[in-house]
Write a protein that binds this DNA or RNA. Structure first.
Lengths: 234, 234
DNA sequence: CGATTCCTTGACTAAGTTCAAACGGAGTGG
DNA sequence: CCACTCCGTTTGAACTTAGTCAAGGAATCG
């Protein structure tokens, strides 16, 4: 793996409190690899052999069933994914594919599990990470069950603007069809939902979105910290 | 707390591997209480002060937003709930209410966190439990995103029959409207979906369901271990 | 019993999907 | 440099699914 990647990985919630010895040990058995866009990293149902850490690029976790597909999560650097399957030593429930060219660190699940057994600080971090991931999924399920498609779109726009540092304008970080799938709708529905929101506080230009009336958009979205505040758990 | 409850709690995945000393310590600071049906135990947004363990009865975890409500999970004995919020010392994302008269053990989150710090076996069990909960939520999100209402109903029926020990007939363990909400639909839709399934391998008599043609029902449901096999993680 | 609560059914409405076609931008090759 | 192609997006129209509203029925519980 590259040395310039290390500091970013070291500062992940997962490794921040871990001893240097353990961290270096884990890095020594991991390997980093670059993947082209649209490449399948693994497929649901396979055994979880590696904890993946996205260092650069972007990755979609998706699920397939009966010929249908849904994007379950969109991963951005630097963060790990599919920790739960690695911990339990079971099969992936989701597949992963790169959206852009991506650099990924692959950490053997066996070594991770061994390190956890040795180092309580790592165990604590994993626990915290899993709890956070669990709550993220609860939020997603709430979003799906309680909101309409249009409301989900409005909420996502607000949430993304917020995560970008409270900006008003941004360009969509992924293709619209992937976003649509993530939000549980078809690309056509997303397109129409976005059009419909043009009178509700946003302006559109291709993949560029500008929030012109935050209050109004928030009213449509029914913005709620217990669904949308993904960041520092309240 | 009552002594006759202890063995069941002791054999929970969470406490099975824990030292007797720690276990007894935790039990000593916990208290068990009986609640009437339809009682709110806590409300989303409140601080998570107690890990709850359902000893007897049944509990629904639900989420509310903008005047709408959705049942997110149905808890049956003996199992713990809202572990993630306790671990992270944050607010509940869901509310809880009893469905029947229930006996619940309440374990102060502070003591739980302290015990975890002291005992690696407990930390490991918590980790495993959280990972399992996370995967459960992923399954639920997949279910919601990929399946139609009718397919979810069919899959739930099969899953429930399977969890009951592979029986063919059973009576619904909760009221239909709660089941409907859990499955992300209205009571009317559930009613119609069940009627529609009468030609697809089930027979109905009020709350009693008999699976007459498992194959056929499984075909409608598109039964998939990566969504439906809730039990021992594959 | 009578009252309440839950479930079912029917008719209607709204939301979202599907299919098809047109549009538009990015990259390619003549 | 322009035409061409490819692919994602947009738009329109028909259709399907699920939700809403309202009324009737069935079961339950004081």
């Amino acid at each position: 793996m590259r040395d310039e990647e290390k500091p970013a990985i070291r500062s992940l919630p997962l490794f921040r409190e871990v001893s240097t010895q353990t961290f270096e040990g884990l890095m020594a058995v991991s390997y980093s690899q670059a993947f082209p866009p649209q490449l399948d990293l693994f497929t649901q149902g396979e055994r979880a052999d590696f904890l993946h850490i996205l260092v650069e690029g972007s990755v979609a976790l998706h699920a397939d069933w009966n010929g249908r597909e849904a994007v379950m999560a969109m991963v951005r650097p630097v963060s790990s994914f599919i920790l739960a399957a690695c911990i339990r030593d079971v099969r992936y429930l989701m597949s992963a594919r790169t959206l852009e060219r991506s650099r990924i660190l692959m950490l053997p699940a066996v070594d991770l599990r061994a390190a956890i057994r040795r180092e309580p600080e790592l165990a604590a971090a994993v626990m915290s990470e899993l709890a956070s991931g669990y709550r993220g999924m609860v939020r997603q399920a709430k979003n799906l069950k309680l909101r309409t498609a249009r409301e989900r779109v409005a909420a996502w726009l607000l949430g993304h603007a917020h995560r970008q540092g409270g900006v008003n304008g941004f360009t969509l970080p992924v293709e619209k069809r992937d976003l649509a799938s993530y939000l549980g709708m078809t690309p056509e529905s997303l397109s129409r939902a976005l059009s419909g929101l043009k009178t509700q506080g946003i302006a559109l230009d291709g993949a560029r979105v500008i929030i012109t009336d935050r209050e109004r958009l928030a009213a449509v979205a029914g913005y709620d910290p217990l669904i949308d505040e993904v960041g520092d758990d309240i």
